[in-house]
């Protein structure tokens, strides 16, 4: 694995870390397995790319992408809470609807941003080497959102949101509408995922309707790797764990793709297979560890 690959994996880990924080918010905090993220990641990319293509500001396009993601998330949550459709199904409905919507937004299944302005241009000339520029900016955005999310989860509203995922009956008895918590929480989560998609499109120079495939799996893998490695003693520890999980996950993928054994080597098209294997491993890890510990005691 070359240094360049490591930097690339780190960068992906950071951009997808933003998405993973969103997945953590739904999956772990709200106990709402939200599959709409497979559609809101490309939604963010599509909105941002389409705006830049139309001559809009790359910075504003990030905010628009986030707003679009939040709206889509709110749709999933409303379908689930108000129409009483199973949360998994509600997410799938939004996801497939977004597939068509994303193509509408871009006017085509993909949109290249060659020679178009991006948010990274503003930082040019600050003396930062151009190949680590996206990494630096993404890290700053990620840090801001991490701190914001940590603060938010300690507000009165945030507490009610955390308790909703834990014990909705108690939350109702303590006078809070759990539907409100779910709608706001899922919207915020998808806003972060869409922002992640927009940053991805701008750093890779294109948006593609298929780029969201497996988002939920990657996010979940990051969440679980983080939990397994650093635990969730406090909110901050859990959030940092998710980011660490995201970076490690990308490094593991990069390592697997550069694997070569005689005539056997892996192709980029094997990525989904590797992803599935890695996630299965991450999911099984706590169980395997428990069994090994149990054996040691006996």
């Amino acid at each position: 694995m070359s240094w360049y690959t490591v930097i690339g994996a780190l960068e992906q880990g950071i951009v997808f870390g933003l998405m993973s924080l969103g997945v953590y918010l739904t999956f772990r905090v709200l106990d709402f397995p939200d599959l709409s993220v497979d559609g809101t990641l490309p939604l963010g990319a599509a909105v941002s790319a389409a705006m830049i293509h139309a001559g809009g500001s790359p910075q504003l396009s990030l905010i628009a992408a986030m707003a679009a993601g939040m709206a889509a998330g709110a749709v999933t949550a409303v379908i689930s809470t108000k129409l009483r459709i199973l949360n998994l199904l509600a997410g799938i409905l939004t996801m497939i609807a977004l597939y068509s919507i994303n193509i509408r937004i871009m006017g085509a299944p993909n949109l290249a941003l060659l020679n178009r302005p991006t948010v990274f241009d503003a930082l040019q000339g600050l003396g930062i080497p151009s190949h680590v520029l996206p990494l630096a900016l993404d890290a700053v955005v990620l840090l801001i959102l991490l701190i914001g999310l940590e603060r938010f989860l300690h507000t009165s509203f945030g507490l009610a949101l955390r308790a909703t995922g834990d014990n909705p009956r108690m939350v109702a008895a303590q006078g809070f509408n759990t539907h409100t918590a779910i709608i706001v929480g899922v919207a915020l989560s998808n806003g972060m995922v869409a922002l992640s998609g927009a940053l991805l499109a701008q750093s890779f120079g294109s948006a593609d309707v298929g780029m969201g495939l497996g988002t939920i799996i990657a996010g979940l893998a990051s969440v679980i790797i983080g939990e397994t490695l650093v635990g969730e003693r406090t909110v901050l520890v859990a959030l940092v764990g998710v980011l660490l999980g995201s970076v490690l996950y990308r490094l593991a993928i990069a390592a697997a793709l550069s694997f070569r054994f005689g005539p056997i080597s892996l192709e980029p098209s094997d990525l989904n297979l590797i992803t599935a294997l890695l996630v299965a491993l991450a999911l099984a890890f706590p169980q395997v560890r428990r069994r090994l510990k149990g054996r040691a005691i006996r």
């Binding site: 300690h154 507000t155 009165s156």
Partner: peptide, 10 residues
Amino acid sequence: RGKFRGLGPA
């Protein structure tokens, strides 16, 4: 309980 839950520290 019974009050507005906003974005102030809990």
